[in-house]
Design a protein around this nucleic acid. Structure first.
Length: 793
DNA sequence: CCACCCATCTTTTTT
DNA sequence: AGATGGGTGG
């Protein structure tokens, strides 16, 4: 039994051995949090807690899978419920659907489904979208739901103009969802929270059933999740939550940092355990992370430390533009892989926005580096997949209006937009699903006879498809694709694109279904399959034993770790994102986002930013992220762009000579100086640190780091900005390398690996300039901008 | 009713 | 730059 505790540190053991009563585990990055949670589950089981009394709630399926795997290793064969909040709620809701006005075969609308539904609701509510876009309305409603507001309570609450519009749409939208026998993601939580609130008997039953609840990433819970967990921990308050306020990055979707900050107030008898020792990163990485996060005000002070050996300094690298950044990173990876320093799977590249992965993708593909994008073009979002799934959805739940609208004329069946609109109108008027309206096409006066015939033909097709509803998924899918004519449709319309043909994607979906059938041999497979599909995210598709470089957003990186990490685009308006500068809490969240990214790195880390970046089509000058000023620059390695003047001069538009000037330092109540960080649990105080003090301090830090005169930064000999500019910092550290033009045919060069050689040919211009070089062991090709070459003599 | 073309807007992040 | 949606011509 003690084998379970042997390999734990005292604080870890302390947490693992806690059985009854609430517990808060404040776990810094890389502190062995998952290990503690899994060991604790095993410990509970060992101490006679029945497995069915335990539920472990996570935010991603991946986290749940990982947990399951590790618990199974410690306590083989024990079936403890582990899964996401949403799945937990979805399953409860299956059972108690009727209590909230749903049927048990209800559908889960994904984001695009609910967007469609929202548009329809906006139309039906008759509000103008001129001052609030459908997205904004959807966001307001989502926010309201996350705060457990009903349409009625929302009316009384928010008074911002946009929210007022949203409050009018909310009841309509909700009614339409009910008619469609559907819920959106927020509803999964909302319905269950309401159920627990309004059905005391059910609540106490479930409280007794789930006696031991564990919540992972508690800092990311929103009010609905909080309420659910709380309601299940009244009679049996054996609630244990783990989290790190510094890693809360989902405020934008309603996560409430107060949930974790106030946990000790909510449960006065709480046991608090701090896991501060880091087992993941080098001290270098950790210091950078720590320095950064100290600038946050709303946090619980932690002392991060590690016994790991010192590694390489963290690199801060400047590039001219996004392409150079991508190329350099790809080259770096190629070079490390080809010299056996690392494997592709050691590398991860993080960015703020998915769109930034494009240039990286190009660069990697061009060099034949295997990579995976977690979250690129999502499989389940592709049209052909959504189309086929829509047929299944409609078969499973005839009320699924979004699905009906998707398939009724796909492939084309002579049912146009006007006809669909009339069906919709009829459905709205009679509060019936659109499929029902289609059945009653004859009753719809506005429908042309010809249209009504087409509609009825579709209904006939539907009924034929529906007869296979309980068949094995594979049969059902093949039947649907064939009978609906969708396969023919695809063949006709599929564009001969390179790697992914729509037809192949459909096949992939079918194999996914086969796989699902095999693992869930019990009946009701269609419903379960659709639920599964609705609740998986692309983050879950990440394969960590693959021999590939991983590209992902900073958000997706949470909970993962990699030996070597690149974080690209650490730029103003991008890393503190433009839209997150309105208030302090959002700004701090951006800082946490960078913190999360940094702390993923085990041994090596490079942050980079560009002087210009292509954004939405055109190239714009860029200001480095203000967060860079908060890092311990003096102990980091700074590298200026490896690009040379000879192409910089004529390839790059120079109409923005001040692009690279002093970054605007954000001085607000959020960027407190480290001394004034509140270490107590009361975060109400909001004193303003001296604006000037902070600026002085920041500048002083640069002063130390760059106490040398700065050379001119670019070919135009711009006046040197004052000390404090990153341009200065970068220039000081720039590698002194010969200009590209020095490499001409016949020149003798030396390579760090191949030794001396002779250039036998050069081609291309600018950053793409290549040289073919004859070495003792043969010929090699290099891109001059990046190759580690020096001129001999 | 359908196919194609152009304009607009988008892009933060995800269950 | 790329997707999505609306408008126009067939």
């Amino acid at each position: 039994m003690d084998a379970l505790l042997n390999e734990l540190t005292p604080p870890q053991r302390d947490a693992v051995c806690h059985v009854d009563g609430p517990m808060l585990i404040l776990a810094g990055p890389g502190s062995g949090k998952t290990r503690v949670v899994t060991h604790r589950i095993a410990y509970l089981l060992q101490h006679g807690i029945p497995e069915w009394q335990i539920a472990a709630l996570t935010f991603t399926n991946k986290a749940a899978d990982e947990m399951r795997l590790r618990v199974d290793a410690l306590a083989p064969g024990r079936q403890v419920w582990m899964g996401t909040f949403h799945r937990f709620c979805a399953q409860l809701l299956r059972r108690y659907a009727s209590m909230v006005g749903l049927q048990e075969n209800y559908s889960i609308y994904d984001t695009s489904d609910s967007k469609q539904a929202m548009k329809r609701a906006i139309e039906a509510a008759g509000v103008s979208t001129s001052h609030a876009s459908p997205e904004q309305i959807a966001q307001s409603i989502s926010k309201a739901k996350n705060q457990l507001m009903t349409p009625e309570t929302m009316q009384m609450h928010g008074l911002s103009p946009k929210e007022t519009v949203a409050a009018k749409v909310y009841p309509v939208y909700q009614q339409q969802l009910l008619t469609a026998n559907a819920v959106d993601f927020d509803d999964l939580l909302l319905h269950v929270a309401n159920l627990l609130r309004h059905q005391p008997e059910l609540r106490s039953d479930l409280d007794a059933r789930f006696r031991y609840i564990l919540v992972d990433e508690y800092q990311d819970t929103n009010l609905a999740q909080y309420a659910i967990v709380r309601a299940l921990s009244i009679d049996h308050p054996n609630l244990s939550v783990t989290g790190d306020p510094d890693q809360s990055i989902y405020g934008w979707r309603g996560a409430d940092l107060n949930n974790i900050l106030d946990f000790e107030k909510d449960y006065p008898s709480v046991k608090t355990v701090r896991l501060e020792q880091n087992y993941r990163s080098t001290p270098n990485v950790l210091r950078v992370a720590d320095q950064l996060i100290r600038h946050n005000r709303r946090r619980k002070q932690k002392e991060l430390f590690t016994d790991n050996p010192d590694g390489q300094p963290v690199i801060l690298r400047m590039f001219e533009n996004g392409y150079e950044e991508a190329d350099a990173i790809a080259d770096e990876i190629v070079s490390a892989v080809s010299t056996d320093v690392a494997r592709p799977s050691d590398f991860a590249i993080f960015c703020r926005m998915n769109s930034l992965t494009r240039s990286l993708e190009h660069a990697l593909r061009g060099r034949g580096v295997p990579y995976q994008i977690v979250n690129g073009v999502e499989f389940y979002q592709r049209k052909e997949i959504k189309d086929v799934l829509a047929y299944l959805h409609l078969i499973n739940n005839p009320g699924h209006d979004v699905a009906l609208q998707r398939v009724i004329n796909t492939p084309t069946r002579g049912i146009g937009a006007k006809t669909v609109q009339r069906l919709q109108r009829f459905a709205d008027d009679h509060h019936v699903p659109m499929l029902e309206a289609a059945r009653r096409a004859d009753e719809i006066d506005s429908l042309a006879k010809r249209s009504a015939t087409m509609v009825k033909k579709f209904v006939t097709l539907y009924d034929r498809l529906a007869t296979k509803a309980t068949a094995p998924l594979e049969d059902l899918l093949r039947f649907v694709v064939q009978e609906s004519g969708y396969d023919k449709h695809l063949e006709k319309h599929s564009i001969e694109s390179d790697d992914t043909s729509p037809l192949a994607n459909v096949d992939e979906l079918i194999s996914a279904a086969v796989d699902f059938d095999r693992r869930h041999p019990d009946d009701g497979s269609l419903e379960a399959f659709l639920e599964q599909v609705a609740l998986v995210s692309d983050t879950d598709a990440f394969e960590d034993n693959d021999q590939r470089v991983t590209l992902m957003t900073l958000h997706a990186s949470k909970g993962l770790e990699f030996p070597r990490v690149f974080i690209v685009g650490v730029e103003d308006d991008l890393l503190p994102h433009k839209r997150s500068k309105e208030d302090d809490s959002q700004f701090e969240e951006e800082r946490r986002l960078l913190f999360v990214g940094i702390t993923r790195a085990k041994q090596w880390l490079q942050l980079s930013c560009c002087k210009r970046r292509m954004i939405r089509g055109d190239t714009r000058p860029v200001i480095p992220s203000p967060f860079l000023n908060e890092l311990p620059l003096e102990e980091m390695e700074r590298i200026e762009s490896t690009a040379r003047r000879d192409w910089f001069d004529h390839d790059i538009d120079q109409s923005h000579p001040d692009a690279w000037e002093l970054p605007e330092i954000q001085i607000d109540s959020d960027s407190a100086d480290p001394e004034s960080i509140d270490t107590s649990f009361d975060f109400g105080a909001n004193q303003d640190p001296g604006r000037d003090d902070h600026a002085q301090e920041t500048l002083a830090r640069f002063d130390e780091a760059d106490a040398k005169p700065a050379p001119a930064a670019n070919a135009h000999d711009q006046p040197i900005p004052e000390i404090g500019s990153l341009r200065t910092a970068a220039d000081l550290l720039s590698n002194k390398r010969p200009p590209l033009t020095a490499f001409r045919e016949g020149i003798q060069v030396r390579h760090y690996e191949y030794g001396e050689g002779t250039i036998i040919a050069v081609s291309g211009r600018g950053p793409k300039r290549m040289a073919r070089i004859q070495f003792a062991d043969g010929e090699h090709n290099f891109r001059l901008a990046f190759a580690k070459l020096e001129v001999v003599g």
